[in-house]
Design a protein around this nucleic acid. Structure first.
Length: 420
RNA sequence: GCGGAAUUGGUGAAGUGGUUAACACGCCGGAUUGUGGCUCCGGUAUGCAUGGGUUCGAUCCCCAUAUUUCGCCCCA
């Protein structure tokens, strides 16, 4: 037997109902906010991710699915959504138009990781990228959109953790200050932090081991290293969020792992989730440098991404979603060949009128068909028998009350629609 | 990349170094001649993740591998 590859899942049964619902909510909300669906390739040239996500990030260092195709091209399965969207924006020269481009995506991502709770090798993210504007109103819209989608799925106690890294200069100054600050104390920090000071010093700030140490608590804060313009910009973002009535907390330790971020960075967490490690449902930030770095014009971008797998597993724990079941409206039962022909017609008619309908596909006896109908959670049963059919009648049974009624065969679709 | 735990039918699982691997649910068939769900009867793993080893004998002990799961790193 061939099993599925490590770190992958089959989404089926009741789970797939929740997935379909989540996708439905996402696309509706995206539509209201006027975001255009974009579908970029699942694989891209490897160089794209090396240049965008950054060599220092673990995503590129050890987590990408890389391979050479038959034409000797270095290909990588996408580990995140932003790079592909930005690539497309540049490649298609969307920036020549004076408009802001607002994209949303929803698709599978691939990271070669050790699977564990809330973490898969193939997982699904949805997210947005807004390209071509640096106005803080866009930051606020992106953050609030993420918040409102999760909220409308019924997730409660959401909180945005937000921070600003400032522009390139602020970010570099801060990075330098951090390194200078930590260097004399490095032996007091954990082994991972000793490594981080070389690769990504900002990450020391959210180290779990040293979280309570006074060294970390007294570390320089990003906010203090913002130049006045960056600071003003950040304050505007916060002001707009206030007007949108979005709960946020300014958290100077939010740094995000991807190299391309500047200015606004944020994460969204569900405070209800017991599993504090996986309570980060999504995150994002502004990436004004990235477009130029990928050979585009000097432009602006901001986006967020959310993990649908994590959202669905959170939803599954909620009362609201616990009793979700796949069910059908009508099950049509027959035994003889002649009845079968009638069934064919009745079923098709119901289906074309939007009634979720099933009939016997296994040539079972009547008893077996009752069992199948129950397993499918059918609301109504239509039972065909030759005697009634000759009089133009069919039996309809309400499977909840067990009441039966004989209905004219020409009015059956109408009758069912009226009863549902 | 590093560390811990686990792996027995469709499902939940019990179990033992020695002939037929409990029990329950589910499923299939029958009692019930074309209106079921209750009840009763019968059937449902030629095999205990895979490959080696120890042993007269291994599902059970040992090793390796795979997968699952929980952590670290990192991230959604």
């Amino acid at each position: 037997m061939i099993a599925k590859p490590k770190g992958t899942i089959d989404i089926k049964g009741n789970d797939s109902i929740i997935w379909e619902y989540v996708n439905h909510v996402i696309s509706n909300m995206m539509n209201s906010y006027n975001y255009e669906f974009i579908r970029t390739p699942i694989f891209e040239m490897s160089e794209l991710f090396h240049r965008s996500v950054g060599e220092s990030s673990d995503i590129v260092r050890k987590e990408t699915y890389d391979f050479k195709d038959k034409g000797d091209r270095l290909i990588t399965l996408r580990p995140e959504g932003t790079a592909g969207v930005v690539r497309s924006y540049i490649e298609n020269k969307e920036y020549v138009l004076p408009d802001v481009k607002k994209y949303y995506y929803n698709g599978t991502m691939y990271r070669y990781e050790r699977p564990q709770s809330g973490r898969l090798r193939e997982f699904t993210q949805f997210g947005v990228e807004v390209l071509g504007s640096n106005d803080p109103i866009v930051d606020a819209e992106v953050i609030s959109l993420q918040y409102r989608i999760l909220e409308s799925l019924g997730i409660e106690n959401l909180q945005i953790n937000i921070n600003s890294l400032g522009n390139n200069e602020s970010r570099n100054n801060y990075r330098e200050a951090l390194v200078n600050y930590f260097k004399p104390h490095i032996n007091e920090l954990c082994d991972d932090c000793k490594e981080r000071i070389k690769t990504n010093p900002l990450r020391i700030l959210d180290c779990k081991v040293d979280a309570d140490s006074s060294i970390l608590k007294n570390a320089p804060k990003t906010i203090d290293y913002l130049n006045s313009e960056s600071k003003k910009r950040f304050e505007e973002v916060l002001k707009y969020l206030d007007y949108l009535e979005i709960d946020y907390e300014v958290n100077p330790n939010i740094v995000r792992g991807l190299d391309y971020y500047d200015h606004t960075v944020f994460e969204i967490v569900s405070l209800d989730n017991d599993d504090s490690k996986n309570n980060v449902l999504g995150g994002g930030g502004r990436y004004n440098k990235l477009i130029k770095e990928l050979d585009g014009p000097d432009s602006y971008g901001i986006g967020f991404a959310c993990g649908i797998d994590r959202i669905v597993s959170l939803l599954k724990e909620m009362e609201l979603y616990k009793n979700i079941k796949r069910e059908i409206d009508v099950y049509v039962m027959y035994v003889s060949e002649e009845e079968k022909l009638y069934s064919l017609n009745i079923v098709q008619n119901l289906r074309l009128n939007g009634v979720v309908c099933e009939t016997d596909n296994l040539n079972k006896g009547l008893k077996g068909q009752f069992k199948v109908a129950d397993r499918l959670n059918a609301k109504y049963l239509i039972i065909l028998n030759n005697e009634d059919l000759q009089k133009g009648l069919v039996t309809v049974k309400d499977n909840a009350t067990k009441e039966e009624e004989k209905i004219d065969i020409d009015e059956i679709t109408e009758y069912i629609i009226g009863s549902l």
